[in-house]
């Protein structure tokens, strides 16, 4: 039994047409994004299935998935909040903001809340330095810019409701 839905596998197959015939490994990054959007993270089996669709060795997928920071090869919370920690954002309070996030969620960076709802991660510059502090939440990755404590409180409430609804 495959864990990726036939829909996702179809989407990945479609992606291949964007690249020359013998170069379909090129579809690997977009394929992994699709797999992760469906699964929430990338279990080994999902990576193996991607390898099969693209006709490459599983190790070629592991090599790539572990190189790029957007792919979660370990299980994460339902929502992953990724907040920028790079210099420019820090000039406008990103460090204090991250600390507030930790307090509010009662977890440290890299951890997941007890209810499995939220994983908090710091990431490097998101190219939103003029509107920091900034964070994003997969799989849509819409940026939340000019973050304040109040905005963050509201966001968490929103995620809690969304998390309940999807169950």
């Amino acid at each position: 039994m495959s864990i990726l839905s036939s829909n996702t596998i179809q989407e990945i197959t479609k992606l291949k047409s964007r690249y020359p015939d013998d170069r379909q490994k090129s579809a690997l990054l977009p394929a992994l994004h699709l797999a992760q959007a469906e699964q929430g993270w990338l279990p080994v089996q999902a990576m193996d299935e991607v390898a099969e669709v693209l006709d490459i060795q599983p190790i070629e997928v592991y090599e790539v998935a572990t190189f790029y920071t957007m792919f979660h090869v370990k299980k994460v919370g339902k929502f992953v909040i990724e907040v920028c920690r790079t210099g420019p954002c820090c000039t406008v309070g990103a460090e204090e903001f991250v600390q507030y996030m930790e307090e509010k969620l009662n977890i440290k960076v890299g951890e997941t809340t007890e209810d499995g709802l939220i994983t908090l991660k710091t990431v490097e510059c998101l190219a939103a330095c003029g509107t920091g502090p900034v964070l994003q939440i997969g799989p849509e990755y819409i940026y939340q810019e000019n973050m304040t404590k109040k905005k963050f409180d509201d966001l968490i409430e929103e995620l809690k409701i969304k998390g309940l609804k999807d169950v």
């Binding site: 964007r18 990054l29 977009p30 992994l32 994004h33 190189f67 790029y68 920071t69 792919f71």
Partner: peptide, 10 residues
């Protein structure tokens, strides 16, 4: 013309 997404790597 195609858009290709990266995966998070400066």
């Amino acid at each position: 013309l195609y858009v290709h997404p990266g995966g998070g790597a400066y």
